[in-house]
């Protein structure tokens, strides 16, 4: 019991440090948005292997968008799934570190951006954790 409490304490300290670290992580990626304007919001979180995070947003006809997702390399090849309002996957891609795509919509749509980290590879004794940031630019 004592050991478990000790582990929890270490993880707690680690995660609190990660919270601030991920804010900085998100801000660094903003420079890659140019010439698009940021939407005045950035989204960042700590994920473990096998975790997912999602962002809901309306994308408007007539606007051009840049989607930028950055993740710690140690998380492995992250996957982006874009889903429409019915939950259909309309686009999917995988990459290490950074996923950046420019896109537009033929009509205004509510979409969900889902970022999935891979399961820990066989033989890896513990889940790795790392920052993931999602930033949207428009023009």
């Amino acid at each position: 019991m004592k050991n478990i409490l000790r582990i929890l304490f270490i993880v707690l300290v680690y995660n609190t440090a990660s919270y601030g670290q991920c804010n900085g992580f998100a801000k660094k990626s903003l420079a890659k948005l140019k010439p698009y304007l940021n939407t005045q919001q950035v989204f960042s979180t700590v994920l473990l292997n096998g975790d997912k995070t999602q962002l809901s947003s309306t994308f408007y006809y007539g606007d051009e968008y840049r989607l930028l997702i950055t993740a710690d390399d140690k998380l492995g090849k992250i996957q982006l799934n874009i889903k429409d309002s019915q939950g259909n996957v309309v686009f999917t891609t995988k990459a290490y570190g950074t996923i950046m795509w420019d896109f537009n919509v033929e009509s205004t749509q509510d979409l969900t951006l889902e970022v999935v980290t891979p399961e820990a590879p066989a033989g890896q004794t513990e889940d790795k954790s790392g920052c993931v940031a999602i930033v949207i630019g428009f023009k």
């Binding site: 990660s18 997912k52 962002l55 408007y60």
Partner: peptide, 15 residues
């Protein structure tokens, strides 16, 4: 920091 997998969701609005 995510509480658990299912609750890790964000919402974006236009600036």
């Amino acid at each position: 920091v995510p509480k658990h997998r299912a609750e890790n969701a964000f919402y974006s609005i236009p600036s």
